[in-house]
Simulated scan of single mutants.
Amino acid sequence: MQGTETVDVLIVEDDLRVAEINRRFLEKLEGFQVVGMAASGEEAKEWMEVMQPQLVLLDVYLPDMKGVELVWHIRQHYRQTDIIMVTAAGEIEVVREALRGGVFDYLVKPILFDRFKRSMENYRNHLRTLSHQGRLDQHQVDRLLRHTRDELPRTSSSADLPKGIDPVTLEKVVQIVNEDGETGLTAEQVGQLMGASRTTARRYLEYLVSIRRLKADLAYGTIGRPERKYFAV
């Protein structure tokens, strides 16, 4: 799968209004096309046999079966197909069973477009990484295995932050590291880019790591001690 190829998507949803919303969301995003819409499990199986889509957007409660049953059917017969659950069902056992079935993401209704878009972008990035030739390093594997994360607030108020952490500066640090891509930055480099000392930059960086908005790892150079680098998640 190359990063420029279009992802064929099957929407499995018995609520026609919700199915239409999902379809319109997908139409706003590049790289995706809806190849079918099914309102039941049996209808979904028929679409799967004919179209064999790359991705299925799957509701949990269908008229004739539970969506998790369809997850295992897809896993057994269409191993190249990925699944994103789109449902109002947030019960822990349902989520646990879906995760056991290897679903890529789990979106709980009502879904905001920004969250939907982020899920689809994460999926496209996932496919891009898997399309690379050769070997993956540990950081790339970590990103593949942790593509879905607890939804963390993208902004913070002063009242929610530890002493010495400014919300505006915090978001600036996140932006600096995100713009660097996958190569990572040291605390000293971040400090230079934000116009602050290395100690100040490290304080912000370590806080962001603690709330899982950034990732840290040791980078081994040719000489000297390994450096702690910070990466986007």
Rank of each mutant, 00 (worst) to 15 (best):
residue 182 E to H: 08
residue 195 G to S: 00
residue 32 F to K: 06
residue 191 G to W: 10
residue 19 A to K: 08
residue 1 M to R: 06
residue 177 V to C: 07
residue 60 V to F: 07
residue 125 N to V: 11
residue 94 V to L: 00
residue 213 R to V: 00
residue 139 H to I: 09
residue 233 V to G: 14
residue 225 R to M: 12
residue 19 A to M: 01
residue 131 S to Q: 10
residue 231 F to P: 02
residue 106 Y to S: 02
residue 12 V to G: 00
residue 48 M to Y: 04
residue 145 L to I: 08
residue 81 T to P: 10
residue 226 P to S: 00
residue 195 G to Q: 01
residue 158 S to D: 00
residue 42 E to I: 11
residue 219 A to H: 12
residue 139 H to S: 12
residue 29 L to P: 13
residue 197 S to D: 13
residue 29 L to V: 12
residue 229 K to S: 11
residue 75 R to S: 01
residue 147 H to I: 03
residue 87 T to D: 02
residue 43 E to Y: 08
residue 84 I to D: 15
residue 171 E to P: 01
residue 69 E to H: 09
residue 9 V to A: 06
residue 37 M to A: 09
residue 122 N to L: 10
residue 133 Q to H: 07
residue 112 L to N: 13
residue 144 L to I: 12
residue 135 R to P: 03
residue 1 M to F: 09
residue 194 M to H: 11
residue 212 R to G: 09
residue 28 K to H: 12
residue 44 A to C: 04
residue 42 E to Y: 03
residue 184 G to C: 02
residue 179 E to K: 12
residue 8 D to L: 01
residue 199 T to V: 14
residue 72 W to Y: 14
residue 5 E to W: 08
residue 76 Q to Y: 05
residue 151 E to Y: 12
residue 169 T to V: 13
residue 212 R to W: 06
residue 62 L to F: 12
residue 189 Q to W: 05
residue 166 D to N: 15
residue 209 V to K: 11
residue 140 Q to F: 00
residue 218 L to D: 12
residue 127 L to E: 14
residue 213 R to A: 08
residue 217 D to T: 05
residue 146 R to E: 11
residue 181 G to L: 11
residue 56 V to G: 13
residue 191 G to L: 08
residue 33 Q to L: 02
residue 196 A to F: 03
residue 157 S to W: 02
residue 75 R to V: 07
residue 83 I to E: 10
residue 201 A to V: 07
residue 11 I to D: 06
residue 147 H to C: 04
residue 64 D to F: 00
residue 159 A to I: 04
residue 187 A to Q: 02
residue 199 T to D: 15
residue 142 D to P: 01
residue 190 V to F: 01
residue 136 L to A: 14
residue 187 A to W: 03
residue 92 I to T: 14
residue 117 K to A: 14
residue 59 D to R: 06
residue 70 L to I: 07
residue 39 A to I: 05
residue 163 K to F: 04
residue 45 K to G: 09
residue 167 P to Q: 00
residue 90 G to V: 05
residue 178 N to P: 01
residue 102 G to N: 03
residue 65 M to A: 00
residue 198 R to Q: 11
residue 218 L to N: 09
residue 196 A to N: 01
residue 56 V to Y: 09
residue 212 R to Q: 14
residue 160 D to R: 10
